[in-house]
Write a protein that binds this DNA or RNA. Structure first.
Length: 883
DNA sequence: CGATCCCGCCACATT
DNA sequence: AATGTGGCGGGATCG
């Protein structure tokens, strides 16, 4: 009677199994176990058994997992005949009856467990496990269709790859952390800042979605992800095909977790986000379908122990949600060298263990908080705290907190799928249209934004951080070039900083900031968006822009006032700033990620249409970079980069005339920001614009900078810009420190050309910058100067920095709605941000870290310095050759 | 009754 | 055309 007896499927070929087995035999873990099948029955029977077998409950899983994992490797000879599979219950007699597989028994999750049980989590490199779909399907007694579901998800995480027709190659979890990292980065880029909130937020999301819908560029976003994912290393076959949803969806879904602070994502939110990205229209039916798929994915992820189901209780009721229980921090190999953490720990390993929730430590507190929360088990506490304590806006916090039915407080996170793409595009456009930027640049508002994060005084520091939060961390580490190390002490800097305050020191600490060109863009992006939109109403965001713009100014004002918290001029403002901060923090995301994307994108807007592809590539490239530095490539890239060359040309031109290029202006603005921070900013050339890399030495005029910052709007900072390529060739170019118009610093440094940066300029996006003639001024800050001086080794400094300006921006204008919807609290710490002071500290930390990081970085630099370079270059390259 | 999500039709891609 | 893939949504189960 059993309606569906497993038997149906059984058609499985035993023969295959056995035959196939060879492969699996090694593989097959003993799994289950367990009890010998009561009766061997026929092999088929076994299969059936297996199928039906599942213990009604999942209990097996655990056992299996535990048992299996370890055992896996051990070779067991499996006897094909007897399938190891557990039969769950002894009561065989019942089996038949039981066979009736309750739905659960047939659940995809269980099936997936069985599937996974067959293969070792960490297969020996030597052994190559191939998976035959038919075989597996038959063994597991399911239709092949189901196997596809599993495999597709596994593929998205690179646990398997398709090698041929019915053949898949099992990779195991070796690459998992890398993949997750990549996803996280990509997620940051795409979603940037998600925000967390609770239920209400959802609503927000909804409407936001509606608003944003898809901006103009829907696909581009997706693409990158996909691409990156797909490129799967191994897969020889290019993935041709349109892979569609499941795989991508799976990646995005994972990204949401990785990006979210709470690590809890509700299904409906995820569905909305996913739908949104893909398409605007959210039909109810579509939504349902999406949810179905998400369940499918969730089941697989659950089997992988990456997530677990939880319920989030909202006002309305409880909603199904999933909590990420997988690794949060991915020890990175190359990429994460920086020791941002206050501790400056040198060891990633340690960290790893700890697994900082975010690498970004720089920002410090916030992160920590998160950690706590994240760390495995204490979700509730951590999150709550976060929320409560810091909250920019109380309400958000509240919202954020949700009590789970269980225990956890789960916080919902909403991601705002921001359309970074848009922004990016805008940026690009902006870049192109520097003019616009200029205009916009002038706006104090922009400046304010930058500054906002911090107080006016410190603004400098803060701002930069805020703006380029990530930079610190990453940058330092990455960027720190040997030179730095030597300089590490960064004597000069500190002094400068001191002048102002301790804060300055912070800045000082950070020797360098590198921004990938893209990053720059990003920064601008937010601004840009406004500008762009204004100028380029791509899609009719006008409304947004205006709002954003407004928002910005407000922020600025506050900042100027130097008090963020207080600021109140706009109630919202507080939040916004916070948001920005958060975003920034989030932006922590590895530089690499950010960079690539933007660059690519930017190019698109400007030059190439096919940016999409490029973007994808970027990711990949970037991955590569992280993973392994490829010296040769880098070198090649440098030399080769055509785009760069172009950029260089421009760049060179720019230099001469500082201002001539609109881009410069932008830069100037940034500088204002930067000044605080870092001694240098490095910008990679992105495809489009720029191919320029810039280094700014902030050091020189730290004081100046700071002053400027306080002063506000525009700061003039001495900067050095170096084209990436140029870097190699050129030492640094220093712009004499300049005093900002406002601030006096100028002289101090000497240097080179003073640059004024106004935020607005940033907005402009154009990566360009000031071109001063390049001159190196030793005087300037020691460190910078040093670097600069070292022409040959320009690269050392380059630290790739990621900036997530966009996010920041977006945050700013949550209202704007356009983009990023989210806001949220990023990290609790961010809450702090509310107050300027608090903020500072955070940043300070970051800065501090920087120094620390510097040390580390230095260390590595020696080792890795090259890598850094490479990375940059690679990026460039990638940008250049987006295809 | 809503949450889950299995099942398998069927379209599209490959071979 | 056959076969591999996998999108998609009806509708069965579960809680």
């Amino acid at each position: 009677m059993a309606p569906k007896t497993p038997i149906k499927k059984e058609p499985v070929d035993l023969s295959k199994q056995k035959g196939c087995t060879p492969e699996r035999s090694p593989i097959t873990p003993v799994k289950l176990v367990d009890r010998p099948q009561p009766d061997p029955w026929t092999p088929t029977a076994n299969l059936k058994m297996l199928v039906s077998a599942a213990s009604p409950d999942m209990r097996d899983r655990e056992k299996k997992k535990e048992l299996f994992r370890p055992i896996e490797n051990s070779e067991q000879s499996d006897t094909p005949d007897s399938l190891q599979y557990d039969m769950v219950d002894d009561s065989t007699a019942d089996e038949f009856e039981k066979q009736r597989p309750s739905r659960k028994q047939k659940s995809l999750g269980l099936l997936c467990q069985k599937f996974l049980a067959r293969y070792p989590s960490y297969p020996l490199s030597t052994e190559r496990t191939t998976i035959s779909l038919d075989e597996v399907a038959s063994i597991l007694g399911v239709e092949r269709r189901r196997i596809y579901d599993i495999v597709n998800v596994l593929k998205s995480l690179h646990l398997v790859s398709r090698v041929a027709k019915n053949q898949y190659c099992w990779h195991g979890r070796h690459k998992l952390s890398q993949t997750l990292r990549t996803l996280q980065e990509a997620g940051k880029v795409q979603y940037g800042e998600l925000v967390t909130f609770t239920q209400h937020k959802e609503q927000d999301l909804e409407y936001r979605f509606g608003e944003r819908k898809r901006e103009t560029i829907p696909d581009s976003l997706d693409r990158p992800l996909l691409d990156f994912s797909e490129p799967d290393f191994a897969s020889a076959s290019a993935n041709s095909r349109k892979d569609k949803s499941l795989r991508i969806m799976s990646q995005k879904f994972v990204m949401l977790f990785l990006v979210s602070k709470t690590k809890i994502v509700t299904l409906d939110i995820a569905a909305k986000i996913l739908i949104e990205e893909t398409q605007d229209t959210v039909d109810h039916s579509k939504f349902k379908t999406k949810v179905r798929r998400l369940y499918d994915i969730a089941n697989v992820l659950t089997s992988l122990d990456l997530i677990k189901k939880v319920h989030v209780t909202e006002e309305r009721g409880r909603k199904p949600a999933f909590k990420w229980i997988g690794p949060v921090e991915f020890p990175g190999r190359t990429d994460e060298p920086r020791g941002h953490s206050p501790t400056s720990d040198p060891l990633p390993g340690a960290r790893r263990g700890a697994r900082a929730p975010y690498r970004i430590c720089a920002n410090g507190k916030q992160r920590f908080t998160r950690h706590a929360s994240f760390n495995s088990a204490q979700p509730c506490e951590g999150t709550k705290r976060k929320v409560n304590s810091e909250p920019n806006s109380p309400r958000q916090e509240r919202e954020a907190c949700i009590v789970n039915s269980d225990e956890y407080c789960s916080e919902m996170i909403n991601l705002a799928p921001v359309c970074r793409q848009k922004i990016e595009e805008d940026t690009r456009n902006q870049a192109c249209a520097t003019e616009m930027t200029l205009t916009s640049a002038r706006n104090p508002s922009i400046t304010s934004l930058l500054s906002v994060p911090r107080d006016s005084d410190f603004c400098v520091n803060p701002l930069p951080q805020a703006v380029f939060p990530e930079v610190h961390k990453d940058v330092p580490s990455l960027s720190l070039p040997s030179a730095i190390s030597s300089q590490a002490p960064h004597p000069s800097t500190p002094a400068a900083s001191e002048t102002e305050n301790g804060k300055a020191t912070l800045v000082l600490n950070q020797p360098f900031l590198c921004f990938p060109s893209s990053s720059l863009i990003m920064l601008c992006g937010g601004l840009q968006e406004n500008n762009l939109r204004e100028t380029l109403p791509t899609s009719g965001d006008t409304g947004r822009r205006s709002t954003e713009a407004q928002a910005v100014p407000a922020a600025v004002c506050q900042k100027r006032s130097s008090h963020k918290c207080a600021s109140p001029s706009l109630p919202v403002d507080d939040e916004e700033p916070a948001a920005k901060k958060q975003t920034v923090e989030q932006s922590d995301v590895p530089l690499s990620l950010v960079v690539p994307e933007k660059p690519f994108e930017s190019p698109k807007a400007e030059s190439t249409p096919g940016s999409g592809c490029a973007s994808a590539l970027h990711l990949e490239d970037f991955h590569l970079d992280l993973a392994s530095p490829v010296a040769p490539e880098a070198a090649d890239k440098e030399s080769t980069m055509p785009l760069d060359s172009q950029g260089q040309e421009k760049w060179s031109q720019n230099k001469g005339p500082d201002e001539p290029s609109p881009g410069k202006e932008h830069i100037s603005k940034e500088d204002a920001n930067q000044p605080f921070l870092p001694q240098y900013l490095y910008v990679q050339p992105t495809a489009g614009l720029s191919s320029f890399n810039f280094l700014f030495s902030a050091n020189q005029a730290p004081g100046a900078v700071s002053l400027a910052a306080s002063q506000l709007p525009s700061l003039s900072v001495p900067c050095v810009i170096v084209p990436s390529t140029a870097l190699a060739s050129f030492p640094l170019v220093c712009s004499p420190t300049v005093a900002s118009p406002i601030s006096p610093v100028p002289d101090g440094s000497s240097a080179a050309v003073p640059m004024n940066f106004s935020m607005s300029s940033l907005a402009s996006t154009a990566p360009v910058f000031i071109g001063t003639t390049a001159v190196v001024t030793p005087e300037v800050s020691p460190m910078p100067s040093v670097d600069l001086q070292q022409p040959a080794h320009p690269p050392p400094h380059l630290s790739p920095v990621l900036v997530r300006p966009c996010g920041a921006v977006k945050l700013d204008s949550p209202m704007c709605g356009g983009h990023p919807v989210t806001l949220v609290k990023l990290e609790q710490p961010s809450s702090t941000p509310l107050t300027p002071k608090s903020i500072r500290p955070t940043r300070h930390e970051a800065f501090f870290k920087t120094p620390g990081s510097l040390e580390d970085p230095v260390a590595w630099k020696k080792n890795e310095g090259n890598q850094t370079r490479n990375v940059q270059r690679r990026l460039e390259i990638s940008s250049t050759s987006p295809d």
